[in-house]
Structures are given as C-alpha cells and as structure tokens.
C-alpha cells in the first residue's frame, strides 16, 4: 500500500519546495555574494573583511568568549550535574525541571535581568558603593564580562542537562571502584568520570559553543556597540553601513561553524546508537 513513489513525492514536495524557496535559495544567494566581486568568483571579500581591525577583533572575541563560556560551563556543569544525579528521584526531577525552566523563557527576558543587576544603579553596584569598595559605581554593563555572564546563564542549562545524561549512563560502580583502588577525587574525575562522560561533554560543549557564537540578543543588550560579536556586527554592517558583502562573509562563518557542530553531533549520536 505504501509502494507508490509518486504519492510519496506529492506528500513530501510541498514542504521541501517551501523550504528551498523560502530558505535554501535566499541563504545560498546571500552566501554567494561573499564570493563574488565584479561578476567574478574571488575571495577578495574575505581578505578585505579580515584586513579590518574591527572585524578581526570581533571574530577573535566571539571565538574567545565562546571558548571561555564553554570551559566555565563545563566546570560548573560537572559540579552541578554530579550534585543533581546523586539526589533522590523526586528531588532530582524537580531540580532538572528547575534547570530546564530558564530554557522556556525568552532570551530577551533572561538577558534583561542582568541590566537590573549590573547597571549603574543595579544590585552589584549598590553593594559595591554601599560597602565602600569604590566611590563611583563601576561600569559593568557593555563589557565583555557582562556578555560572558549573560551567555553563561543562557547556555549553562544545556551543558548541565547533557552532563546529567552522560553521568547517568556511566556504569554505577565506576567511581566507588576507583576510590577503593585508592584514587583521590581529582584522579577519579580525570581518569574515570571524564573519559566515560566524554561524549556528553562534547555534546554539551558543542551546543554551548555554537550557541554563544551565534547569539544575538545577549551581545546586543549587554554588549551594545562596545562589545560587538559576530551577529551584532552583522546587524550593524547592514543597518548602518549597508554593507551586505561583509554580512555575507559573517553569515558564511556562522553557517560553517553551525554545520560543523551539527555534523559532529550527528556523528556522536550514530556512534552511540551503534554501540
């Protein structure tokens, strides 16, 4: 009954055609703009893009922040995941719910809170001036630190959930076995937990890294034009400088990173299934 290929195509085609026309084609054309100049295929747009200091700074900053957020989220993630995994079932369920909760809330709302906290009259500054640690309120917003904190808060749940899954799939007795053999906690982590949860770490890390790299709202709200990241730079190039070629270059970089991450995640998933 499900033999008819024409039927199958008729059912699948509308979605495929829609996605191609509305999505695939426009994006492909946009990307091609970065590789053409005066009707010829060339990499001049890319060399020009990276010749500008601002662009290089933004590019490096985005990668650097991405790595920093990933590294810190991994450390906190392991600690949190470990604590959660050892809770009794009801507590565990509730904690996982609480960790997942922020993911349901709009990034605008989540990022906005930091304005209240890090602003000139925000909580942190109130504390600092109140305690007399500084005469003037510190400028905490529109700094890399602010963007870092915002991104961390945004993506930490993803890392934690990933590590929880990895820890739960670890053989239950691996840690006690290592302890009995004389390992201290650092050795237990480095030699037992890390290798066994490596996949979860990679999954979480990939999600956090690509998320940070392709973030818009957090850098926009907490970094503004002082701390530009790839997407906010892109927005600026288009809306202010009408520079679509630069936008195309940035778009290409973002897509390549995103694709690479996706392929990596797919490969890990199939490797896990094969086992």
């Amino acid at each position: 009954m499900f033999q008819n290929r024409a039927e199958a195509l008729a059912l699948a085609l509308p979605a495929a055609v829609f996605a191609t026309l509305v999505f695939l084609l426009p994006v492909a054309i946009l990307l091609s703009e970065g590789f053409r100049a005066g009707g010829a295929w060339t990499l001049s747009a890319y060399t020009h893009f990276f010749s500008e200091t601002l662009n290089r700074t933004v590019f490096l900053r985005s990668f650097r922040l991405g790595l920093e957020v990933t590294a810190v989220s991994a450390v906190i993630g392991y600690a949190a995941a470990f604590a959660i995994v050892n809770l009794p079932p009801t507590g565990k369920g509730r904690l996982i719910g609480l960790v997942t909760l922020p993911l349901m809330i709009s990034p605008v709302a989540r990022t906005y809170a930091w304005i209240v906290i890090l602003g000139r009259t925000g909580i942190v500054n109130q504390g600092i001036t109140g305690l007399g640690l500084s005469a003037e309120p510190l400028r905490l917003l529109f700094t890399e630190t602010a963007v870092f904190i915002g991104l961390l808060q945004l993506f930490l749940p993803l890392m934690i959930l990933s590590l929880i899954s990895a820890l739960e799939n670890m053989p239950r007795d691996a840690i006690p076995a290592a302890r009995v053999l004389g390992a201290n906690w650092f050795q237990v982590f480095w030699k037992v937990v890390l290798p066994l949860t490596r996949e979860g770490l990679v999954v979480g890390g990939t999600l956090v890294f690509t998320g940070s790299l392709t973030a818009y709202i957090t850098p926009a709200v907490l970094g503004g034009s002082k701390v530009l990241m790839l997407e906010t730079l892109m927005y600026q190039q288009v809306s202010v400088a009408n520079d679509f070629v630069s936008a195309s270059v940035i778009a290409f970089i973002l897509i390549v990173m995103s694709f690479a991450a996706n392929i990596l995640l797919k490969r890990l998933a199939t490797a896990r299934n094969r086992r």
């Binding site: 979605a15 426009p26 054309i29």
Partner: peptide
C-alpha cells in the same frame, strides 16, 4: 532540506529574505 532551518542562524534567514 527540511531540517536546515534549525542549523542556520535565524538572523541570516531574515537578512536573506
């Protein structure tokens, strides 16, 4: 093709359109 929109950052789609 149908899964691509998850992978490509949204800002690019908006700009392209």
């Amino acid at each position: 093709i149908v899964s691509l929109p998850i992978i490509v950052p949204g800002i690019i789609v908006g700009l392209a359109l």
